[in-house]
Amino acid sequence: MSGIALSRLAQERKAWRKDHPFGFVAVPTKNPDGTMNLMNWECAIPGKKGTPWEGGLFKLRMLFKDDYPSSPPKCKFEPPLFHPNVYPSGTVCLSILEEDKDWRPAITIKQILLGIQELLNEPNIQDPAQAEAYTIYCQNRVEYEKRVRAQAKKFAPS
């Protein structure tokens, strides 16, 4: 494992614990031996107030490669969400998460999670990743928002 990646992720964890947006979660997972795995984080993004996503808490896994922060983490909703920019596998399609697009090593975990929260309610229809959600979003916004509200209710924190 890269010392650069681990040191950056340790800084990220410290900064997150000191200050993070209300309702968001970002925690490194534990290895079988109980030690912390900084390369694999369990996160959760709350649906934004005043949107059909409100009330939901959407679980996301963030996986970092050894060359982080040169390369972005892979962000994957578990379980996958109904959304035009979420692949059926759950992987998020967002330009700041793509090395050859808008990724920059200075982007923080907090910025990534806030960017994904923004994307939930403002899909990028130029870059669809899920045919069904994309089609319904474009053709029947009322039905799309109904499905999103049902999903938010399903993923409401207990």
Rank of each mutant, 00 (worst) to 15 (best):
A15V: 11
M36H: 05
K154N: 09
L94K: 00
P46M: 05
C75F: 15
T91Y: 11
L113V: 12
D33Y: 03
L119V: 07
I136M: 11
M36P: 02
I125H: 03
H83R: 00
A106E: 04
D67C: 12
L114N: 12
W41K: 05
A5P: 08
F24C: 08
A129H: 04
Y87E: 03
S2E: 11
L119Y: 14
K14H: 05
P157C: 10
S158D: 04
S89P: 10
W16A: 05
I109T: 06
M1F: 07
K101C: 14
R8D: 09
L9S: 00
L63G: 13
F22H: 08
G55A: 10
S71Q: 12
E98K: 14
C138P: 00
L81W: 02
L97G: 06
L38M: 07
G55Q: 11
I45D: 04
R149S: 10
T135P: 05
M1R: 01
R17H: 01
D100S: 15
H83K: 04
G23T: 00
A131I: 04
N85L: 00
S70D: 05
P21Y: 04
M39T: 10
Y134R: 00
S70E: 10
P52D: 11
E98D: 15
K153V: 04
L119N: 04
T29C: 13
S89G: 14
T135L: 12
D67R: 07
Q126L: 11
N85Q: 02
L6A: 10
W103L: 02
W103E: 00
T35P: 04
G3M: 15
F82D: 02
Y87S: 01
E132V: 08
K153Y: 05
C43K: 02
F24S: 01
Q139Y: 14
D33Q: 03
R104P: 00
E42C: 09
E122H: 10
K14D: 04
N40A: 15
Q130K: 03
F24R: 02
P32I: 13
V25C: 10
S70K: 07
Y87A: 03
W103F: 11
L81S: 03
A133Y: 06
S158N: 12
W16E: 02
R104C: 11
C138N: 15
R8E: 13
T135Q: 12
E99H: 07
N140Y: 07
L60I: 13
D100C: 05
Q139E: 13
G55S: 10
K59R: 13
A106C: 10
K30D: 06
P28K: 06
H20V: 00
E118H: 12
L119S: 05
D127H: 03
R61P: 09
F155T: 05
F58I: 05
F64Y: 10
L119A: 00
I112A: 09
G34D: 10
V92C: 08
C75E: 03
W53M: 04
P52Y: 11
R141G: 07
P32Q: 14
G55H: 13
A15Y: 15
K153E: 14
E145K: 08
D67V: 09
K48P: 15
L114R: 09
G23W: 07
P88E: 15
N85V: 05
A156Y: 08
F64L: 11
G47I: 05
A131C: 13
G34W: 07
D102T: 06
P73S: 05
I107R: 06
K146V: 13
M1E: 06
G115T: 00
A150I: 14
N85Y: 00
F64K: 03
K49G: 14
P46Q: 04
C138W: 08
S89F: 12
G47T: 05
Y137Q: 05
E132W: 05
R13W: 01
A133N: 01
I107S: 13
Q139I: 07
F58K: 05
V142S: 14
G50L: 10
D102L: 04
H20K: 04
S71H: 14
D102R: 02
Q151S: 03
K14E: 02
K65L: 14
E99S: 11
A131R: 05
G115I: 00
T91L: 14
P21G: 04
I136T: 09
P88M: 13
Q111S: 15
R17G: 02
L9A: 07
Q111R: 15
L97F: 07
V86H: 09
T135R: 12
S70G: 14
P32S: 14
I112N: 13
P105L: 02
P105F: 01
D19H: 06
I45N: 04
L114V: 15
C75S: 12
P72G: 08
G50T: 05
I45W: 06
K30W: 03
L63N: 11
E99L: 00
I112G: 06
R8Y: 08
C138A: 15
M39L: 10
V92T: 07
P105N: 01
I107M: 13
P21T: 02
M39E: 14
H20S: 01
T29S: 14
Y68Q: 00
D67N: 11
S158I: 12
L113H: 03
L119T: 01
D127R: 02
P79V: 14
P69C: 03
M39R: 08
G34A: 07
K49L: 06
E145G: 05
L60P: 02
Y87M: 08
Y134E: 06
K59I: 10
T35L: 02
